[in-house]
Simulated assay, not measured.
Amino acid sequence: MTRALQSLRMVFFPADGKGIPVGVFVIIVAFMVLVAGLAPLLAPVDPNTQNLMGRLKPPGTVARGTLFVLGSDELGRDLLSRLMYGARVSLSVAFLSVLLSGLVGTVLGMVAGYKRGWVETVIMRVVDIFLSIPAILLAIITVAVLGPGFVNVILVLALTRWPRYARVAYGQTLSVANMPYVRLSTAMGASWVRILALHIFPNIIAALSVVATLEFGLMVLFEAGLSFLGLGVQPPTASWGAMLSVGRNYVSNAWWIATFPGICLFLLVLSVNLIGDRLSDYLNPKSR
């Protein structure tokens, strides 16, 4: 346990002291996850409670006994509470879509890289077809067909991003499949499912973890983009993208509605991307 903690400290808090330690961004992400998980306990008021006498109040204003720490929106709803609940939506959609797309893409990529032949041809040509279509365009079209909603957004994002994992898993499997221990397991009669699960997957999980980290930030942006267009989680559920969409109409007289969700999105995506870059450098011996 102590050795694992020391390894994590070396990865995210390097001793060279150059620049901002990536661990700072790990703390930012952890803080957002904590706030999202404890939103029902931390939120000052219900995020959907309207206070028409407190519409478009700037940060620090008190209206009808409610303190709007970060201001209120066009319906008098507390912006801080909606930011907390919006974090739950963004993080949940990103995590579940990364998990689902990673599972599907990894399995198909490993099967294609190990089985080869017609299986490889079919899977990788399907991957090429999906990669030839702009991801956001495919997501918009699919959501328009299936309809908006929390579950549908997760399915759509997983559908558009699984080829990325399939590509990485395929390439990594090709490099591992010819290793002596894999050939020995095959000669001893081990099934291909057992070989993939016990011998190949543990050796490619590092590369897949980097992809998943970078994809997480992208999923946050995709969810916000779909919500911004009205194709994501539907009102009155709080969502950072939907808050940005509303806030653009009030930039001149209520800048806080769009500014604070934008800052949260910026910090989350920046932090996740920097963490992914640091993991990539650490797990790639050639970059050390």
Rank of each mutant, 00 (worst) to 15 (best):
M1A: 13
R3P: 01
Q6E: 15
Q6N: 14
D16A: 00
D16R: 04
P21V: 05
F31G: 14
F31L: 15
V33W: 10
L34G: 05
A43Y: 09
Q50A: 09
L56F: 00
T61K: 13
G65C: 06
T66K: 13
L67R: 11
F68G: 11
R77Q: 02
D78K: 10
D78A: 02
A87I: 01
L91C: 01
V93M: 08
L96Y: 11
V98N: 06
G102M: 12
G113K: 09
G117V: 04
E120I: 04
T121H: 12
I123R: 06
V126R: 01
V127M: 01
I129H: 10
L131Q: 13
L137W: 09
I140Y: 03
T142N: 07
V145M: 14
V145R: 03
G147S: 05
T160I: 13
T160N: 12
T160C: 10
R161Q: 08
A166E: 12
Y170D: 08
S175R: 07
N178G: 07
P180I: 04
Y181T: 06
V182D: 04
A190L: 12
S191H: 02
S191M: 00
V193R: 05
L196V: 02
A197C: 06
H199F: 00
I200R: 09
N203L: 02
I204P: 00
V210C: 01
G217Q: 05
M219S: 11
L221T: 11
A224Y: 12
L231T: 04
V233E: 12
V233R: 12
P236G: 05
P236H: 01
A238V: 06
A238H: 11
R248T: 15
N249G: 11
Y250T: 03
N253P: 00
N253L: 09
I257D: 12
T259W: 11
I263P: 00
L265A: 09
L267E: 12
V269Y: 06
V269F: 04
L270S: 11
N273I: 02
L274Y: 07
I275G: 01
G276F: 05
S280P: 02
D281L: 12
N284I: 12
